[in-house]
C-alpha cells in the first residue's frame, strides 16, 4: 500500500512514519508532502492508496486539500492526523469525506486500531 504523509512539520512526518512502522505498516511505501497543495500534486502524480494529512498547514489546509480532492471526484482514502480533536472538527472531517481523525499526541496502538477499522 502507498501511504502519503502530509504535514508542514518535518518532525511530525518523521513521527508519523515511525509510528506507522511501530503499528506494523513498516513494509508499505511512504511519500511525504509539506502542505495541502504539495499533497494534491503528489496524489495526482504518485496515486497513493491512503493519505494521512495534518489539518493546519500554510498554503493549503488539510480540509481544503480534502475538498479539492472531492471536487475532482478523487476518492483516495483520506484521514486526518491533527493537533486539534474537537467534536466539531471530527464532524467537519466526516462531512467532507475523511475516514477518520487521529488527534495528537497519538500512540502506535491508536494508529493501528484506527487503520484496522478504516482499511479493508
Amino acid at each position: 500500500m502507498k501511504i502519503l504523509i502530509v504535514d508542514d512539520s518535518k518532525a511530525m512526518r518523521m513521527i508519523v512514519k515511525r509510528t506507522l512502522r511501530q503499528a506494523g505498516y513498516g513494509d508499505h511505501e511512504f511519500a511525504e508532502a509539506v502542505d495541502g497543495s504539495n499533497g494534491y500534486e503528489q496524489v495526482c502524480d504518485w496515486k497513493p492508496d491512503l493519505v494521512l494529512s495534518d489539518w493546519n498547514m500554510p498554503n493549503m489546509s488539510g480540509l481544503e486539500f480534502l475538498q479539492k480532492l472531492k471536487a475532482d471526484r478523487n476518492n483516495v482514502r483520506f484521514g486526518f492526523i491533527t493537533s486539534e480533536g474537537t467534536a466539531e472538527m471530527r464532524q467537519v472531517a466526516q462531512e467532507n469525506g475523511a475516514m477518520f481523525l487521529i488527534s495528537k499526541p497519538f500512540t502506535a496502538d491508536t494508529v493501528k486500531e484506527t487503520l484496522r477499522k478504516a482499511l479493508p
Binding site: S9, A11, S83, K104
Partner: peptide, 29 residues
C-alpha cells in the same frame, strides 16, 4: 521545526481542553 511542533500539539490539546468555555478559538502557526 521540532520545538514548534511541540507547542503546536500542546496548543491543539489546550484548545480541545477549553472547548467548553470557548468554542471559537483559532490557532496561529
Amino acid at each position: 521545526d521540532a520545538i514548534g511542533e511541540i507547542v503546536n500539539i500542546v496548543a491543539g490539546m489546550v484548545k480541545t481542553a477549553v472547548h467548553d468555555q470557548d468554542d471559537a478559538l483559532n490557532l496561529t502557526l
